[in-house]
Design a protein around this nucleic acid. Structure first.
Length: 154
DNA sequence: GCCAACGTTGGC
DNA sequence: GCCAACGTTGGC
């Protein structure tokens, strides 16, 4: 099993939004970055992910979600009215993919980016999230890092 | 293939 | 709202 991190702006889509969605699940559409897309194509059913709130008052990890459907074409790329429309993608040769994720649980407390950065030079070296300039919306998390971060919870 | 211009992300 | 860090685009 592999571990991941999914970023979302809570104003646009928060952990509560996921929890309140039908079946507590959603499709993770709108990713338009090749590296992030490749990560999604590597995801397997049952993989776990952190739900990260970005671009907000206190950016940080707030919950845990699970991949419940593996990568399939992101149909929002085909819709000219969609914000993430991409004329270069089409159903015959889709360029962008998405996975479905399901709410698992909220962390006992949010683990802020500020707190995670305290470990950037020790327990969380090479964790992409705490490296400068990282803008990937989907990124892998090693088991070592995953376990350490979950351990910060309590 | 280089690189300047441009658009986006996201912390602060 | 600012701006640094990137990724992408397109002229040459």
């Amino acid at each position: 099993m592999n571990y991941w991190l999914f970023k979302s702006e809570p104003d646009a889509y928060s952990l509560d939004d996921l929890k309140n969605d039908k079946g507590r699940r959603t499709h993770w559409d709108g990713v338009r970055n090749y590296q992030a897309r490749n990560f999604m194509r590597n995801m397997a059913k049952g993989d776990l992910g952190f739900f990260y709130h970005s671009n907000c008052e206190e950016p940080g990890i707030v919950g845990i979600i699970e991949v419940c459907r593996e990568a399939y074409p992101d149909h929002t790329a085909f819709d000219p009215r969609d914000k993430h429309f991409d004329a270069k993608s089409n159903p015959e040769e889709p360029r962008w993919f998405m996975v479905d994720v399901r709410y698992k649980r909220r962390l006992k407390r949010p683990i802020s980016l500020r707190e995670l950065k305290e470990y950037a030079d020790s327990r969380l070296t090479d964790f992409a999230l705490v490296r400068r300039g990282n803008r990937l919306s989907v990124l892998p998390v090693t088991k070592r890092h995953w376990d350490f971060i979950v351990g910060l919870e309590s």
